[in-house]
Computed example of a mutant assay.
Amino acid sequence: MTTTYALLLRGINVGGHRKVPMAELRSLLTGLGYGDVRTHLQSGNAAFTTGRADEAGLEAAIGRAVEEHFGFAVDCLVRDGAYLRAVVDACPFPAADLEPKQLHVTYFSRPVTADRFAAVDRGAFLPEDFALGDRALYLYAPEGLGRSKLAEVLARPALNKGVVATTRNWNTVTKLVELTAVSPA
Rank of each mutant, 00 (worst) to 15 (best):
D115F: 03
F117A: 06
P127D: 09
G144K: 01
D97L: 15
K101E: 13
E99V: 00
G133R: 07
G123D: 12
R156E: 13
G162S: 13
L150Y: 01
R122V: 02
A124W: 13
E99S: 10
V112P: 00
F125Y: 04
K101I: 13
Y107K: 09
A95P: 10
D121E: 15
F125D: 01
G146S: 02
R110D: 07
G133Q: 08
P142F: 04
P94L: 09
G144T: 04
V112Q: 04
L154M: 03
G146Q: 13
P127V: 06
T106G: 04
Q102Y: 10
L98A: 11
K161C: 09
R147Q: 14
R156P: 03
G146L: 06
A131T: 09
A119G: 03
R116T: 05
A118F: 02
V153N: 04
F130Y: 11
F130R: 10
A158R: 11
V153R: 12
E99N: 08
G144D: 01
L145V: 05
E143W: 11
A136Q: 02
A114Y: 06
G146T: 09
A114N: 06
G144A: 04
R116Y: 12
A141P: 02
D97M: 03
Y140E: 08
P142H: 13
P100M: 01
K101D: 14
F130T: 00
D115G: 09
R116L: 00
A158K: 14
Y107F: 07
T113W: 05
F117G: 00
V120P: 02
A118K: 13
E128L: 00
L150N: 06
K101W: 11
L154F: 01
R135P: 13
T106Q: 09
R122Y: 12
A158T: 05
G144I: 01
D121A: 13
Y107R: 06
Q102R: 14
H104L: 09
E99A: 03
K101Y: 12
V153Y: 00
S109P: 11
E128V: 02
R156M: 15
S109V: 02
Y107A: 01
P94Y: 06
A136F: 01
Y107L: 14
A141Y: 08
K149Y: 00
L98M: 15
L139D: 05
T106D: 09
P111R: 10
V112L: 13
E128S: 07
A114P: 01
L150T: 09
S148P: 10
P94R: 07
L139H: 05
S109L: 05
E152Q: 11
Y140L: 07
P100S: 15
